[in-house]
Write a protein that binds this DNA or RNA. Structure first.
Lengths: 151, 151
DNA sequence: AACGCAGTTGCGAATGAATTGCGATAAGGC
DNA sequence: GCCTTATCGCAATTCATTCGCAACTGCGTT
């Protein structure tokens, strides 16, 4: 995993290049995002950041999320709960499987599916710019399926 | 294609069974939906219906959409424009390709992708309850690709 | 054909996520 | 350190959707 500080520094350069500034607030929000291993929404990010800086405002979080998104530093998702959820974008593309009972989000990726998508789009006369694939499911079997120690 | 009147009647029976009523408003909205070949949002449905009954209110459209959805008569989609869009659900399952330039929605289905999805979910210990696949793309080639008269 | 009662409606107010206007503040090039 | 201007905090605003409530209307019953 890429270091958090490194990621912050990279983004700072990116901002500078665009004539923008690296502020305390942005640094803090970036840190919160980098430390998150889930997909928090704006309020969630605000809450976590607020602990470290009680002067931070929710508007700033929203503004920063929009900025980060247009800069390509994060991805915004709209799952079925109606709010926008975010995750940092320095990792490889992946899709999501959402546990409809717990709301837990599991990431996965499938080159085969991507390939089929491209093929379908091409057949319809389109090229895919981006896509969204969300699977909503429930855990199999009463007892949690346990992996065999070697499989 | 199933007749509109037939569809309305079917739904009326479905309502009766649930102790609900077939009202003028519901009949009208149902008709508008059945005649729509696109994916209108609440306001769009309201506008089309309002022509036939200027006493109709937007709240009623929203309420009816929710009812129709829980009754399984329509499907609700949340594409990237932030509003809920609807389509009647009497047809086979399909996914959507959205033209990012025109907003046009094209329907398609791919058993191969569905199969892969199930396989992936199973590998993660899940069974899929439903899924959402949206492709966002732009039309290929400067000139509109024309189908050969026989292909 | 009239009755009655619960399901429905229209209206306006309320909600909640996200955005914005504005005066105050602070980043960072000089 | 200074100055320009991007950014911030706050309150007010927007926009989709929902809700409260009194009036109304399906529709099974008499």
């Amino acid at each position: 995993m890429k270091g958090i500080d490194q990621r912050v520094t990279e983004f700072e350069h990116q901002l500078r290049k665009a004539g923008l500034r690296m502020t305390q607030q942005r640094r803090l929000i970036l840190r919160v995002l980098a430390e998150a291993d889930d997909h928090p929404d704006a309020k969630g990010i605000f809450t976590r950041a607020f602990v470290h800086d009680p002067t931070l405002s929710l508007s700033t979080v929203y503004r920063t999320m929009k900025l980060l998104e247009t800069q390509g530093a994060i991805e915004r998702h709209a799952f079925e709960d109606g709010v926008s959820r975010y995750e940092h974008a320095d990792q490889a593309h992946h899709d999501h499987l959402i546990d409809i009972e717990t709301g837990k989000v599991i990431e996965f990726s499938s080159p085969e599916i991507e390939e089929l998508q491209a093929k379908i789009a091409a057949k319809l006369g389109y090229e895919i710019v981006r896509h969204k694939l969300e699977l909503y499911g429930r855990k199999l079997g009463g007892k949690t399926r346990r992996r065999r120690p070697g499989a």
